[in-house]
Amino acid sequence: MELLGIANYLVLFLTIAGVYALLTLGLNVQWGYTGILNIGVAAFFAVGAYTSALLTAPATAQPPGPGLPVAVGMLAAMPVAGILALGIGLITLNLRSDYLAIASIGIAEIVRLFLKNEEWLTNGVRGMAGIPRPFAGVDIAGWSAGGALYLALTIAVIGVVFAALQILYRAPWGRALRAIRDREVAAEAMGKNVLWFRLQSFVLGSAVMGLAGAVHVHYAGFIGPEAIDPLFATFIVWVMLIAGGSGSNLGAIVGALAIWAVWSVTELLGQIPEEPITGFGALRVFLIGLLLQVILLLRPQGIVPEPRE
């Protein structure tokens, strides 16, 4: 029984870490590959989650939907998040990088307001429940294996995304992005269309974040505008990437696992004393912020540094 509890917890931990790993991989394409500063990670995540939820919700769900297969929802989440990125990228990507960072806050805020207020589409603050969860209720020898099977699916998705991003990183396309990141003027002088490459990188990274949202929503079966704290979600993904090693896809995954482990362990520590500690949640956020500063000061290249060419 005890062992089963630990196994179930591990499955839960790894699935959420997997969702974060996808988000971190998406951010790595933008920040790690190209040097694009996106502070609106949660917005692309939410757009992906809602897209898949709206398409796959069955007629019995609250609110009802067309009940398309989960695979369709997950595949649709990517282009929808990508189109949002295309719109905002066209306006801001030929400007200085800090302007995009500011604009991405605006996008995140507007997406949040939209999801909260447009009840006809999103059911407003009540959120959307009854979204299909693949493998839910699957029983193997008395053990409800739904969670483990979904974890396997999540790992498979990460594997595909990781492999694709590795190929792109080594390809001339990836080299062009790094050239733009490190020596923009030189890249331009070599005839690279800087705006076009930046746009592709921003859209691709955002599509991966949208996919992360879809993977999350079919695990949780529920999505609401307050289901995740958008600011904190964006922030912890940034810490994961910087800790893991910006520019390295392996680093992105390692960073997501490591930081999510730190976060989960501190949560468990908070449950040890009988009296709940006031402000403990805020203290954890504070410490994660401190961790980011320490990494930036002492090991800016992260745990798995980007390979040198």
């Binding site: 402000g279 956020v285 912020g289 401190l290 980011l292 500063q293 930036l296």
Partner: peptide
């Protein structure tokens, strides 16, 4: 020396730390 974008990321973190400190 690490450049303005690294400073921006750091300041984003500083903001979150201040918010948490105020809450505490």
């Amino acid at each position: 020396n690490a450049g303005p974008l690294v400073l921006l990321v750091s300041s984003f973190g500083v903001g979150l730390m201040l918010r948490s400190a105020v809450q505490m």
